[in-house]
Amino acid sequence: MLCQVEQSNELTDVNAPAPQPLHVTFREYDKAAARSEAALASEIALAITYNGLSQAVMMVSPGNLEDFIRGFSVSNDIVEDLSEIYDVRLTHFDQACQADVQISSRAFWALKNHRRQMTGTSGCGLCGVEALEQALPQLDILQPVPLPAAAHFNGIRERIEQAQQMARSSGALHAALYFDAYGNAVVCREDIGRHNALDKLIGALQQARIDTRVGFTVVTSRCSLELIHKAVRAKLGTLVSLSAPTALTVQWAIRHRLNLIHVPHRNAPRIYSPV
């Protein structure tokens, strides 16, 4: 089915319907055990072209693909902002989707000039990078913003679990969430890939023209350097992770004036940036 993505400024909240998990039959490691069903996360292959030029093929969760394409385009420096995306057309197949994206001439020229083949995976976000300059790019320095109030982190893991509709039924999914200035979870995006989840969130927030310098963004995954790149390019104010960051990640957050906070399981939140 061929469908054109409609442009909208409406922001989908955390209670919006999520793609249904797939039910798979299994039995325990016992010949006498009865067969049961488990709900497992679904995934599809997504191929993205820009003005007819193939750029990436990756495995993603099937929901919120328009958000993912917008966020992927911004956070990978293919477009400067959403005004350079003119059209998105999705062609759906049984286990795959083709996304044909029309972008501005300026963005397309820059893409061809600096193009690299990127075969996305749910693990390494640097697959296909051909030069150190691309792995460690020059990024703009952000304008500092105040840290979120400490009270916003009370019970945050439980609130994240409530917002993760897909993970509750199927598991095996990362999430990226935006919390507003009052500490309320406004939007949640989930995916098998941690980079994909953040890209989906960035796309949703930019489409709705939400000022992400206010409030904070949470990722449930390991906070890798690539996520810092995406956060800085999307001009997020505060990035919060549930897993500890690496030393290099902290250095980049400090250098680019991105607030970076880690929320451990049993200890108080830790502020790594600003120092």
Rank of each mutant, 00 (worst) to 15 (best):
C188L: 08
T212Q: 06
A208L: 06
L205K: 07
R194S: 15
D211F: 12
G215V: 06
V214Y: 06
D199W: 07
D211G: 12
A204F: 13
C188K: 10
V218E: 07
I210E: 11
I210G: 02
V219L: 06
R194G: 09
V219R: 00
L201V: 10
F216K: 01
V218Y: 09
A208W: 09
R189Q: 14
D211K: 10
F216V: 05
N196G: 12
R213T: 10
Q206D: 11
R213L: 00
V218N: 08
G215K: 05
R209Q: 15
D211S: 14
G203H: 01
G203E: 04
L205V: 10
I192M: 10
D199H: 14
Q206A: 12
K200Y: 04
R213N: 10
G193F: 00
L198P: 04
T212L: 01
A197G: 08
G203A: 05
H195M: 13
L201R: 04
R194K: 14
T212M: 07
I202F: 12
G203Y: 01
R194C: 15
D211L: 09
D211T: 10
K200H: 05
A208Y: 09
L201G: 03
R189W: 02
I202H: 08
F216E: 05
A204D: 13
K200I: 03
I202A: 04
I192C: 08
A204V: 13
G215P: 05
T217R: 09
T212N: 03
D199Q: 15
C188H: 11
I202L: 11
A197V: 02
Q207G: 09
L198K: 02
N196W: 03
A197H: 04
K200A: 04
L198G: 07
L201D: 08
R209Y: 14
R213D: 00
C188V: 13
T217K: 09
V214N: 12
E190V: 01
I210Q: 11
Q206F: 12
R209T: 11
V214W: 01
V218D: 08
L201F: 12
G193C: 07
I202Y: 10
I192P: 01
N196A: 15
I202G: 03
L205R: 07
I192Y: 05
D191H: 01
G215Y: 03
T212P: 00
K200W: 04
V219S: 00
R189H: 12
V214M: 10
T212H: 01
Q207W: 02
I202E: 04
V187G: 06
A197D: 02
G215Q: 05
G193S: 15
V187F: 02
I202S: 05
E190G: 06
V219N: 00
I192S: 05
L205F: 11
G215M: 05
F216N: 02
V218I: 13
G193R: 00
T212G: 00
G215E: 03
G203L: 02
L205H: 08
G203F: 01
V187K: 06
R194T: 13
V219I: 14
A204H: 11
A208V: 07
T217S: 14
K200F: 01
I192V: 14
G203V: 06
A204C: 12
L198M: 11
D211R: 09
N196V: 13
G215H: 04
V187L: 10
C188M: 14
E190Y: 04
G193M: 02
G203M: 02
H195F: 15
E190A: 08
D191L: 01
F216A: 05
R209K: 15
A208F: 08
V214F: 08
R189A: 07
L198I: 05
I210A: 06
D199C: 14
